[in-house]
């Protein structure tokens, strides 16, 4: 399983008497896009938080490239999230007082990159994501779709191993949501990053390599890890296999964004 980037085993998480996760296992391959679906309250966000080192599971293990994430201290996990992971939330992750380009540059600056260099690299993401000319705008001056694309740039700029997205298009209308979602999938894939995305939209899930169904804190049979069909294939695979994407380690700009849709200024 050399291609496994992130893996969760038997994850259990309780909040008081609520069992949010009841023994979930999930493996994410290199460059793979996994959609997590399920009804509200089924434990999707909790699963994502456990995998991303935000929450510690009560029992079970999370490994990033074989390294135990759940055993790390808060400081270490925080550093891990900053350097190895990227995040796209529904909304609100952009600092309203910072221009878009500085919002994107911030994670780099937190990693010690000089301000000039960080902003230069950040700007490189605006054109490919269809945000040309928006560099100096503040989040309040961007549409919802544009703001989410800035957030995608922010998540990818540090060239993370895995991008986590929790209903990233939940606050957008359907067309804009679909455009943004495809951009997210393409951009992560083009940058050799894996993607774990929580979504309600079956259409969105279709762009991912596979879908994992969560019900009452459990992964439905036939999805998740250890499936008969092979470790990294779920149902609804829509043609893109993460395995064939060529990563280009070492470069600092956006990767290939072959399928970026024009328009989409929702």
């Amino acid at each position: 399983m050399t291609n496994v980037v992130l893996e969760g085993f038997d994850l259990v998480k309780r909040f008081g008497s609520t069992v949010a996760l009841d023994g979930v296992g999930l493996a994410v391959g290199r460059g793979e896009a996994v959609a997590i679906m399920g009804p509200s309250g089924s434990g999707k966000s909790t699963l994502l938080h456990c995998l991303a080192g935000i929450t510690r599971p009560d029992t079970g293990e999370v490994r990033l490239l074989g390294q135990r994430v759940d055993a790390m201290g808060e400081r270490q996990r925080s550093a891990l999230r900053r350097t190895r992971f990227g995040f796209v939330f529904q909304f609100g992750q952009l600092l309203p007082e910072l221009p878009a380009e500085e919002n994107v540059a911030l994670p780099l600056m937190l990693g010690g990159v000089s301000r000039g260099e960080a902003v230069r690299r950040a700007r490189g993401w605006f054109g490919p994501l269809g945000l040309g000319g928006m560099e100096g705008r503040r989040p309040g001056e961007l549409s919802g779709g544009q703001a989410q694309r800035v957030a995608i740039a922010r998540a990818l700029v540090t060239r993370p191993a895995v991008v986590f997205a929790d209903e990233p298009t939940g606050a957008l209308d359907q067309t804009t949501g679909h455009d943004t979602m495809r951009l997210l999938v393409e951009a992560t894939r083009g940058n050799d990053a894996s993607l774990v995305v929580v979504t309600h939209d079956p259409q969105v899930a279709r762009w991912c390599d596979r879908t994992v169904e969560v019900r009452d804190g459990r992964v439905l049979p036939g999805t998740g890890r250890g499936m008969a069909a092979g470790p990294y294939s779920g149902h609804d695979v829509q043609g893109h296999s993460g395995h064939d994407v060529q990563g280009r380690p070492g470069h600092d700009g956006p990767g290939s964004l072959t399928r970026i849709l024009p328009g989409g200024n929702g």
Binding site: A52, I54, R75, S78, A79, L80, R81, R82, T83, F85, G86, F87, F89, G92, Q93, L94, L95, P96, L106, P107, L110, A155
Partner: peptide, 16 residues
């Protein structure tokens, strides 16, 4: 609080 919380989730150290 929301922005701060999301920044922290994304790994921004509280010290910063």
């Amino acid at each position: 609080r929301q922005t701060y919380a999301l920044l922290r989730l994304a790994g921004t150290p509280l010290e910063v």
